[in-house]
C-alpha cells in the first residue's frame, strides 16, 4: 500500500514526464479556455433558443480537457492510489444517484472524490472527479459535461488537504463551502448552455423561482448553484473529515501524501 513506485520496473524517463506535464497543461488550458469563452462571449438571450454552437463547444472543449488531464495524471499515480479510484467512483455514483432522485436540492456525489483527494492529493482528486463523471455517464449520460467541474472539486479538495485545512475539524466545512462556490460558478454555464436548466426537480424549482423574479437563465442557474453547491460541498467535506479521522491512524498514514504534508492532525511525518 505504501509503495509509491515499483521496485522491479524501470522508472519513467524525463521525456515521459515532460509529455505528461504537457498533457496536463493542455487539458487545464482547454477547460479554462472553454469556460472563459462560454461566460464572456455568449449572449444571455434565450428567446430564440440557445445557440447550438455554444452547446457543442461546451461539450467538446470540456471533454477534450478532461481526457487530456486523465491521460496526463493517471500514469503518474502510484498503484496504491490507483486501486482506490474505482472504489471512490462507486461511492460517488451510488450516493449521487440516490440523492439526485430525492427532492433534496443537494448532490452529495463527490464523497469518494474528496476522500481520494485528502488521502492522495490534488492530482489524484482531479483524476478521480473526472473519471467519476465518465464512468457515471455510462449509466446517466447527462453527467458527462460536468466532468471538468468534478475534476475541479477533486483538485480544490486536494489543495485544501495539502494546506492543512483538514487538520482542524471546523476548517473542513469552510474549505468545502469555498470549494462549492467555485464549483457552482464553474458548473452553472454548463447547465445553462448544454441543458437549458438543471437535472433535479428540487434544483429546477429554485431556478424557476429566480426566473420568476426576472433573472436571465444563466443568472438564475448561477444563483441556484451558489445556494446548493457550497452547502453540498460543506456537507461532503465534513463527512470525509469524520471518515478519515474515524479510520485507524495506520490506514491513513500509509499514504505518502498524508505523511508528507501532515494532512491530518497528529499525523507526524515519518
Amino acid at each position: 500500500m505504501s509503495s509509491s513506485s515499483s521496485l522491479t520496473l524501470p522508472a519513467p524517463g524525463q521525456a515521459d514526464r515532460r509529455v505528461r506535464r504537457l498533457l496536463e497543461i493542455l487539458g487545464a488550458l482547454a477547460i479554462a479556455g472553454t469556460y472563459l469563452y462560454l461566460v464572456l462571449a455568449q449572449p444571455a438571450d434565450i428567446t430564440n433558443g440557445l445557440s447550438s454552437g455554444s452547446t457543442l463547444l461546451a461539450l467538446s472543449g470540456f471533454l477534450l480537457g478532461v481526457v487530456l488531464l486523465i491521460l496526463g495524471i493517471l500514469p503518474t499515480l502510484p498503484t496504491s492510489t490507483l486501486v482506490l479510484i474505482p472504489v471512490a467512483l462507486v461511492l460517488n455514483i451510488v450516493l449521487g444517484q440516490f440523492v439526485g432522485s430525492t427532492l433534496v436540492p443537494f448532490y452529495l456525489d463527490a464523497i469518494g472524490t474528496v476522500l481520494i483527494a485528502v488521502l492522495a492529493g490534488p492530482a489524484a482528486g482531479a483524476a478521480t472527479g473526472a473519471l467519476s463523471s465518465i464512468v457515471w455517464s455510462l449509466f446517466n449520460p447527462t453527467v458527462l459535461p460536468f466532468a471538468a467541474g468534478a475534476a475541479l472539486i477533486g483538485f480544490l479538495a486536494g489543495l485544501a488537504a495539502r494546506y492543512g485545512l483538514f487538520r482542524r475539524f471546523y476548517l473542513a466545512p469552510v474549505a468545502g463551502f469555498v470549494t462549492g462556490i467555485f464549483a457552482g460558478v464553474f458548473s452553472a454555464p454548463i447547465a445553462a448552455f448544454v441543458y437549458g436548466g438543471t437535472s433535479g426537480v428540487a434544483t429546477g424549482a429554485i431556478v424557476g423561482a429566480f426566473r420568476a423574479m426576472g433573472d436571465s437563465l444563466l443568472t438564475a442557474i448561477t444563483k441556484q448553484a451558489l445556494l446548493s453547491d457550497p452547502m453540498d460541498k460543506a456537507i461532503v467535506f465534513t463527512v470525509v473529515a469524520v471518515l478519515v479521522y474515524a479510520l485507524p491512524r495506520r490506514s491513513t498514514l500509509r499514504f505518502p501524501f498524508v505523511r508528507r504534508f501532515r494532512v491530518l492532525a497528529g499525523a507526524k511525518s515519518s
Binding site: 438571450d45 434565450i46 428567446t47 439526485g100 432522485s101 449509466f139 446517466n140 449520460p141 447527462t142 441543458y195 437549458g196 436548466g197 438543471t198 437535472s199 433535479g200 426537480v201 434544483t203 429546477g204 424549482a205 431556478v207 424557476g208 423561482a209 426566473r211 420568476a212 426576472g214 433573472d215 438564475a220
Partner: peptide
C-alpha cells in the same frame, strides 16, 4: 433506463421554463 433519467429532467425543465419564462 432513459425514462428514469429523463422524467425528473423533464419535470425540472417544465418547472423552470414552463411556469416561469420572463422572455415569453
Amino acid at each position: 433506463a432513459a425514462a428514469v433519467i429523463m422524467v425528473p429532467f423533464g419535470l425540472s425543465l417544465l418547472l423552470t421554463h414552463g411556469l416561469f419564462f420572463p422572455e415569453g
